[in-house]
Design a binder for these strands. Structure first.
Lengths: 142, 142
DNA sequence: GTCGAATTTAGAATAGTTCTTGATATTGGT
DNA sequence: ACCAATATCAAGAACTATTCTAAATTCGAC
């Protein structure tokens, strides 16, 4: 996985191809944008940011690129309630804590060695392939 | 909480008021419908079912009733990816297992004594008020 | 360089949900 | 019981995020 959190956009090197997906200019810029500010932007947020380097990109292309990245397991699509989808370049298993007072979304990782399914009464024979966990609340005093 | 899982709709007794929400005829039928078949119906599913007893009800009213029930903590609204919201009369803390091959959604409860937040690296000072957990996969052999 | 396939673009279309407005029902005060 | 005030309902328009369509552009293999 490409991960150079503190490298400025223009210097960030993204290979020609990731997980079998050819990196076109648009896909590269969309992905670069996600890597750069890990604040879980919406498709429209990404659109606005990518336009700075590719002014002629269209919103439909941003949606196309995000879909391609998601389907190749390069990016994760995260949904909160019925809001716009948000996108996240962290594809490791993790959940999200949504701070209701600021709107900020924090990644939440499992403590080492924890297997979530061990704490659940799953239906007989259930094979879990995908976990989605969202916590909501506030940071700091109530 | 009103819970008479095996009682036919017409005999199910729902009080005049629940958690401060006046039970109008429409709200009562919407809630009765949810209690009757716990298959996580969408607003439109509920609309179709309620029309059997209240043929003149409108979809907007079903949305209004569901919203009122949700806001009074009588019903839970559950969102899966970007699909239509689904509604569930089980307001106890629980997650969902979504069987990808059949589309069926199963409630998943935490094993006794489990406190989910204990297994997570939460941000400093996080106060969790709400947990949403969705698992996806298949039942039976792969 | 040429050809076919993949990608991008712009705008139209779609689906779920919310909003608006006027009608209807319910409640509380007298 | 009557009336005014309030809450709820119905129907359809409006809205928003997303997907689709069709034409133009770009890409990669030959």
């Amino acid at each position: 996985m490409v991960d150079n959190l503190s490298v400025p956009s223009s210097e960030m090197v993204i290979p020609e191809e990731i997980s079998g997906l050819r990196m076109t200019r648009q896909r590269r810029e969309v992905y670069r944008t996600l890597l750069q500010d890990r604040d879980h932007p919406t498709a429209n947020d990404v659109f606005v940011r990518v336009k700075e380097s590719l002014p002629s990109i269209s919103l439909a292309t941003v949606y196309n690129c995000l879909e391609a990245l998601v389907q190749h397991g390069i990016v994760r699509q995260v949904n909160f309630e019925r809001e716009s989808s948000r996108f996240c370049p962290n594809v490791a298993e993790h959940g999200h804590f949504h701070d209701r007072s600021t709107g900020v979304i924090h990644d939440v990782i499992f403590k080492p060695g924890v297997n979530l399914a061990d704490f659940l009464e799953l239906p007989e024979g259930a094979v879990v392939t995908d976990i989605e966990l969202t916590l909501r609340g506030q940071l700091g005093s109530i």
